[in-house]
Amino acid sequence: MATDVETRIDTKLNVGAKIPFKWVIPFIVIGAILPFFLGGYATFQGTLIMIYAIAILGLNLLTGFNGQFSLGHSAFYAIGAYTAAILVYHLDWPVYAAIPIGGVVCFVAGFLFGLPALRLEGLYLALATFALGVSIPQILKSSHLEGLTGGVQGLDVFRPKVPAFLVENFGLTMDQWWYLIAFVVMLLMFWIAWNLINSRTGRAMMAIRDNPIAARSMGVNASLYKSLTFGVSAFYTGIAGAIAAIVIEFVAPDSFTFQLSILLFIGMVVGGTGSIWGAVFGGFFILTVPNFAEEISTGLSYAIFGIILILVIYVMPSGFAGLVNLLRVRIKNML
C-alpha cells in the first residue's frame, strides 16, 4: 500500500528532476545581483544557504535518486571541512585549491564506505551511516589526532584578501566575494547533477532505486553504481563542508554532530526528495526556520521548529518541489 503511493509520487518528482530552463536565467541573474542589495549579514546567510543546498543535493543524489538512506552525511561534511582546514592551516595551501581536494577526499571516503554498505539496506544502512555520523566528532576530538585536528579547540582558517582589481572596480567586500564563489560552485554542482541524472548512469541509479533485482537482471552493475553514487554524494557534501570551513573561518568537532545529518535530511525532504532544484529551498528552510523559531520564543524554540516541520509536511507531503509540480499540473489543467 505504502509502496505504490510512494512510487506514484516519485515518478511525479522525476519530472521535477528536469530543470525548467526558462526559469534558469532569471534565477542566475537574481542570484548574482542579490549580494549587492543585501547587507553583509544577509549576504553571509545567503552563502550558508547555498552551501547547505550543495550538501542537500549530495544527500538527494544518494537517497532521492538511488534509494540509499543516510544519516551520516555530517561525517562527509566534516571530512570535507577538515581536509580544507588542514591543508590551509598546516600546509599553507591556497584556500581555492583546498575546496576541490576536500571534495575528492570525500569521494574516496564515500566510495570506500559505500563498499561495505552494499550489503546493507534500509534500516540497516541507516544504522551504519548513523554510526559513521556519531563517531566522526569523537574521532576528531580523539587525543591521537590532536596534532592534526586541533582536538576540541578546532582549527582557524583565514581567508585571503579579495582580488585587488575586484575591490577597485566593483568595491566587492569579503562577504560578497565568497557569496559569488559559493553561487558559481553551486550552479556548477547543479549542472553536473542534472547531467548525471539525465544520463545513462542516472537512469541506472534510478533503476536500482525502483527495483534492484530487475535492474540487476537488465545488466546494471548494481554494486558499482551504488558505491559510486555514495562517492559522488560524499563528494558534493565534502565540497559544501570545505566551502563552509573557509567561509566560517573555523572548524571544530562539535559543528559536525549528528544534528547536522538530521538537518540535511530535513532539508532534503522539505525541499523535495528526488528533486534537484528543491535543494535550494531545503537549504533556505534549514537555515532560516530554526532562527525564526528562536525569535518567537527562546525557551520553546525547538517545539516551534517541530510544529512548523509537522505543518510543512501536512501542506506539502512530498516537499516543496512536489507542491510546485502539483500546482503546475493543476494550473495547466485549468487553462
Binding site: F265, V269, Y302, I308
Partner: peptide
C-alpha cells in the same frame, strides 16, 4: 520520518 523528528523536538 521528518514528522518523527518534529515530535522529538516538541
Amino acid at each position: 520520518i521528518v514528522v518523527f523528528i518534529g515530535l522529538v523536538a516538541i
